[in-house]
Design a protein around this nucleic acid. Structure first.
Lengths: 122, 122
DNA sequence: ATACGGCTTAAACCATGGTTTAAGTCAACA
DNA sequence: TGTTGACTTAAACCATGGTTTAAGCCGTAT
């Protein structure tokens, strides 16, 4: 198994190291290993978890929910139904948010059109 | 012209009155009128501004930017180009965010599929 | 030997976007 | 006249999601 340092993990995803420490403290990156000097070692599992965390953040899932999801992942297959339920609901929330933004975009388009017309007439 | 109270304005958009007071303090609802007793009077212009504010919030525009936009609206047609520029950039930011969420949704779908399959096999 | 880069911690700090509290004013109705 | 109900304010409080600071430890290249 290959391990990477916090600096390498941070560079891999273009995020600050402090964010990774914060995520670990929040329970988003559990079971973190350490070397003899106390430095964090990101295993392939940690990197996979991190990628999942970042993808969930990309869809605006709150840290509280991500923590629960990650805990279920660690707990194993007995939590499959819970995870399915959470992801299904979250997917719908994301679709709703996209729909809301798409809807609001129309108001923005109306303004853009109005401003273009107004500038044309000058 | 018709005026509505803060309670009516809040009810009209299903938001707390405290939020409206906060928005006014933040400069999102300028030129607010008052009755003899010091109570806010929302004119039709205020209601139109409020609707704009809420639509911009719906697309995650920060308060700082909304304040600038509203100030330009109040300033008049001389700010048309500035507003056009802001809305054009904001539209792109919204499209980018929608694309990012849509992209992340695929990872969620993969998980949902996996969990469904896993449960089927039981 | 020492200095430097990369890591460690706890705790303080910050920005954003409100919400809540406490104390008070005012209009209308009983 | 007094008591509701709707409003007012400033200031404190809160949640979320980090970022920054200060002090220190370790390994290695000079």
């Amino acid at each position: 198994m290959k391990y990477v340092t916090i600096g390498e993990a941070a560079a891999a995803y273009h995020i600050p190291e402090s964010t990774l420490r914060y995520y670990e403290k929040q329970g988003l990156l559990p079971l973190m290993e350490r070397d003899a000097a106390g430095r964090r070692l990101f295993s392939e599992m940690q990197m996979a978890l991190l990628e999942t965390v970042l993808r969930l953040k990309q869809t605006h899932m709150p840290i509280h929910d991500i923590r629960q999801y990650i805990a279920w992942v660690i707990e194993g297959e007995s939590t499959t139904e819970l995870r399915l339920d959470m992801m299904t609901k979250h997917k719908q929330a994301v679709l709703d948010e996209i729909a809301s933004m798409t809807d609001a975009l129309q108001g923005i388009d109306v303004k853009i059109e109005r401003y273009l017309t107004r500038l044309q007439k000058k």
